[in-house]
Nucleic acid binder design. Structure first.
Length: 223
DNA sequence: CCAGACGTTGTT
DNA sequence: GTCTGG
DNA sequence: CCAGACGTTGTT
DNA sequence: GTCTGG
């Protein structure tokens, strides 16, 4: 995963972004709460363009311009092979980005159904997922930027919930991931399960429907 | 050389 | 069951 | 990721 | 666009 995530204001401004990064683009990304971001939605992305740290809205679903069939858009790429796969190698070299989040959702298969979980940092600290962006086609065939997130093996903590997890970047990780001159080895070293503890919250199936966009998505499961 | 593919997750 | 839409 | 649709002929 | 398969 993830196939669904959320953005909320962090408690007491806590975040894992580099302290020396310009705060304005980050603040812009977290300005509006988003409780249920799904594939195809437009969501904020952070990147370096000509040395400038900027925030942009992009569609979630990576589909380069040559890809005529939009059904082939990818929301995730496996971090283990992202530098080798034809579809991703150019972006992995030159179009890396940060996907600002507060956490993501997972659905754990359980007897008779699925348990939804919200996974986040303690205190809902803001953090970044490793992402790639590209330019694809909008509905009229014009250029439109889109993005994906990278996945890794799960941490020990998350293994019971799911067999993949998104790549989480700490402050140094953000710096390196956005560094246009970073070498592949340094980049690949960032693509690992998150070594820290995360907070897990069981939430209700309210979050399942993307028609539900309110804060109820994050409320603890009553059952 | 040209043609055709290019991907993940989850489930079985 | 499988694909599309969000 | 999950939810929801999945189709045609003919008539307006 | 770029790589793989034939």
């Amino acid at each position: 995963m993830p196939g669904r995530y959320f953005i909320v204001a962090p408690e007491e401004g806590a975040n894992l972004y580099p302290a020396d990064f310009d705060d304005a683009p980050i603040a812009a990304a977290y300005a509006r709460p988003r409780y249920n971001i799904s594939p195809q939605q437009t969501a904020p992305v952070l990147r370096l363009i000509e040395g400038e740290f900027i925030e942009s809205g992009m569609r979630w679903g990576f589909a380069p311009r040559w890809m005529k069939d939009p059904r082939q858009a990818q929301i995730n790429a496996r971090s283990e092979t992202v530098f080798e796969k034809r579809m991703f190698q150019h972006a992995a070299k030159a179009q890396r980005c940060l996907v600002p989040v507060s956490g993501w959702y997972e659905w754990q298969p359980v007897d008779g159904g699925k348990q939804a979980w919200a996974i986040h940092m303690p205190g809902f600290a803001a953090f970044a997922l490793a992402g790639l962006w590209t330019v694809g086609n909008d509905r009229e065939g014009g250029p439109e930027e889109n993005f994906l997130t990278l996945t890794a093996e799960p941490s020990e903590q998350l293994r019971p919930i799911h067999h993949r997890m998104p790549v989480i970047l700490d402050a140094d990780g953000c710096r390196t991931w956005l560094d246009p001159d970073a070498d592949r080895q340094a980049l690949q070293a960032l693509l690992r399960p998150w070594p820290g503890e995360l907070s897990l919250r069981a939430v209700s199936s309210y979050v399942n429907s993307i028609r539900h966009q309110g804060p109820e998505c994050l409320e603890p499961d009553g059952s």
